[in-house]
Design a protein around this nucleic acid. Structure first.
Length: 498
RNA sequence: AGCGGGGUGGAGCAGUCUGGUAGCUCGACGGUCUCAUAAGCCGUAGGUCGCGGGUUCAAAUCCCGCCCCCGCAACCA
């Protein structure tokens, strides 16, 4: 009997389907994909989940405006996110939609029923001040001294609603402890600090988790009470359970999630409400929550109102899939906000990919191919230099800390060193002047290229294959393997039109 | 107001915890090879490390005060 080791379970957030995908979510998908691929190369079985969040008032209104049903509307956009994944080469194992009537909706109802039976959900009056300009309940900070809405300067309506509440207060302290003690690892550290502060600030009041169905019909009904619709956040968070097969036999080998990858905007739901819900369900909390930043565009926030949202299609067309994967991961710090600019992307494409990795492969392989008599016995058997071992260790440390941009700079450093080696030894002269030295140098260079391929693989899978192809080796085989230099038909990273 | 992050050569960053030649990438300028995608390599210029004070033999780094930028609203990853 083979021991049933748990899958490495990784998720992205599920984007709301009210707009076409932009590079921000593309990056989140990429970060998750890189981590997923990295774990697979280490021999782990990975379950990588993404999907779409489809309920709520905004979808309903948008659909009405277009004369479609909410489901049709959601279908259209959900498909776009699905296609985005395909275009980026994302290797998710599953795709969950919150409108899924077989897989998701029953799970939500089952979970809420359980919370209700346990007494963690109760019904109460909710009193709020609702601004018809905002179309939302106002928070304290949004109410001016005279009681008007600070944005619309009008008196909000007082609304009394019956809502279901979740006893967040009962679990908050325990969640806080788990975060503080890294039972739930919140990364990066500055986000952890930020989140811990929230527990003391807003405190630990119970959370309203339903709205009247009359107001929000497009959603999931509360169990045994279809006058109430489940709050979209509760609905959305539960995708991590429904997508992992909650209630079926596969669930046990997936839960808990090893890592949720999310944006800073939704950090509080994931660090506060979500673990509390899990505790209430007697399920272990996620092991890690990685919070990435947002992408600014040419120095400004990317937003619909500013009209500067960058889509990923255009990028893919300009640079190609692997390059986009590299550029986004290298240029935007994975643990903080970053800035996107076309000029920067072109610079980096030229420097790191075209003149860096691509050109190195080209020049080394050309020489190798030209002198088959001299380089016929080059092998990859393990005699990797100190530099290679250091590069790999550094890379692994950075991936472990979700600093993907730093992991990639370990690769570019390696490429630089290899270029220096080619020049300082005058590799191209060696086969005739000093064949023994030529073999030694080429052996090192082949080793570098092989490791470059290995380290690039999670980020640029096709490129990694091309590099291995140029060496005539496969991904897994190294020991005693003879290198057969074969210059690629096309440059790895062609020069771009200016 | 409070909380968090940041202010280092033209641009983007590392270094700050564990004081002691200020480093990397891109860009600019000059040189050089010719295996390579007119790529590579070498070199040069360019920094009062936000400001003021303090501790110290010595501070980008530690302490105090101050200034400026960003986030903690919304659309939204």
């Amino acid at each position: 009997m083979a021991e049933q080791k748990k899958d490495f379970y990784i998720t992205t957030s599920i984007p709301y389907v009210n707009a076409a995908p932009h590079i921000g979510f593309a990056l989140e998908l990429l970060e998750a994909d890189v981590v997923a691929r990295y774990h697979r190369t280490r021999g782990e079985r990975v379950f990588f989940l993404t999907g779409t969040d489809e309920h709520g008032k905004k979808i309903q209104e948008a659909a009405e405006k277009e004369g479609a049903t909410p489901q049709q509307y959601a279908d259209t956009f959900s498909a776009q996110f699905h296609e985005l994944g395909a275009a980026l080469g994302i290797t998710n194992d599953d795709f969950i939609r919150t409108s899924d009537e077989q897989r998701h909706i029953p799970v939500v109802q089952k979970v809420l029923q359980q919370l209700k039976s346990n007494g963690d959900i109760y019904k109460d009056k909710y009193e709020g001040r609702y601004c018809t300009g905002c179309e939302a309940f106002l928070r304290e900070a949004e109410i001016a001294d005279d009681g008007t809405c600070v944005i619309h300067e009008r008196q909000p309506e007082r609304i009394y609603e019956e809502n279901y509440f979740f006893r967040f207060s009962k679990y908050a302290r325990e969640v806080e402890r788990m975060i503080r003690e890294d039972v739930i690892r919140v990364v990066p550290a500055h986000r952890k600090k930020e989140m811990l502060n929230l527990f003391s600030e807003e405190g630990v009041r119970d959370v309203s988790i339903s709205r009247p169905s009359a107001t929000i019909p497009w959603g999931i009904a509360m169990p045994h009470d279809d006058s109430q619709t489940v709050y979209v956040w509760v609905d959305a968070l539960l995708n991590y359970l429904s997508g992992a097969g909650f209630g079926t036999d596969v669930f046990a080998k997936r839960w808990p999630a090893d890592i949720h990858i999310i944006g800073k905007d939704i950090a509080r739901f994931h660090t506060m409400l979500w673990p509390a819900m899990l505790l209430a369900l007697a399920l272990p909390p996620p092991r890690a929550i990685f919070i990435h930043g947002h992408i600014n565009v040419e120095g400004r926030k990317m937003s619909k109102s500013l009209g500067n949202v960058v889509g990923s299609d255009m990028l893919l067309q300009q640079f190609g899939k692997d390059a986009v994967r590299y550029l986004l991961c290298a240029e935007i710090p994975s643990d903080d906000d970053g800035d996107f600019s076309f000029a920067r992307f072109h610079e980096r494409y030229a420097a790191d990919l075209q003149n860096g990795i691509g050109n190195l492969v080209s020049r080394v392989v050309t020489v190798g191919e030209k002198y088959p008599d001299v380089f016929g016995n080059i092998t990859l058997d393990g005699a990797f230099s100190e530099a290679l071992r250091t590069a790999r260790t550094t890379y692994e440390e950075h991936i472990g800390n979700f600093q993907l941009h730093h992991a990639l700079s370990a690769v570019t450093r390696l490429v630089k060193e290899a270029n220096k080696l080619v020049d300082s030894t005058k590799l191209w002269e060696l086969p005739s002047s000093d064949p023994a030295a030529a073999v030694r140098v080429m052996h090192d260079l082949a080793g570098v290229l092989f490791v470059v391929a290995e380290l690039c693989a999670p980020f640029m899978p096709d490129t990694a294959e091309k590099i291995r192809g140029a060496l005539g080796v496969g991904a897994s085989e190294t020991a005693g393997r003879y290198v057969v230099f074969t210059k690629p038909a096309q440059p790895l990273f062609p020069r771009l039109a200016p």
